[in-house]
Amino acid sequence: MDEPLISLTGVKKSFGPVSVLRGVDLKAYPGKVTALVGDNGAGKSTLIKGLAGVQPYDEGEVRFDGETVTLHNPREASRLGIEVVYQDLALADNLDIVQNMFLGREETSWGTFDEGRMELETSKALQQLSVRTVKSVRQKVASLSGGQRQTVAIARSVINKSRLVILDEPTAALGVAQTEQVINLVKRLAEQNVAVIIISHNLADVFKVADFISVLYLGQMVASVKTVDTSYDDVVGYITGSKTYTGEPA
């Protein structure tokens, strides 16, 4: 087995008297999709916010590429190549696709925008993910469908050359066809040798796309399994706490 790109060991986080994460381990491998599942309040968001550097962990070890790192703020996270695609899509409606893709990291020459280069990079990024639904990269994001917006948000990580992409409920608000489209997109993202962590409540999606499934239950990682070694019923059992995983963490 390859070395994990990122591995968390014994991560803890509490808000006042409430401990949300009580010693969590998590690994994600390059080129693989790891699904993070768990019921509401299990600590998924808190775990992700720690990886994004938004809410640093209280305790625990974070190893990235085999080296111990700190994640105290979003800049440290993005310097490592960690990108979080949030549920409420972080896109500006009034800007076009290229402008959104490069927001915060525009290419300039002579102090002004090199629009041509940005356009080309955007086209390439969308092509790498085999996106065919977008007619023009100069469309305003306001005119895009939910699936297309999710596509743009995910494609940003290709532009950034991200190494770990975390998707927070990428299919929550989408219809059937668009969900399928985003699932394919996630697979292609992993094919670019990116480590992907996907948070989802939709177990059908999880089983379609994930290589590994990690289950959080009340702030503890109760199961980390290969998707092929487990079943839908087992995972539901781990999530609800009615079943206990006895094997070694995968």
Binding site: P74, R75, S78, Y86, D88, L89, A90, L91, A92, D93, N94, L95, N100, L103, G104, R105
Partner: peptide
Amino acid sequence: GNAEAARRSGV
């Protein structure tokens, strides 16, 4: 257009 999006993009 979206201040939160801008903030998350490092603006």
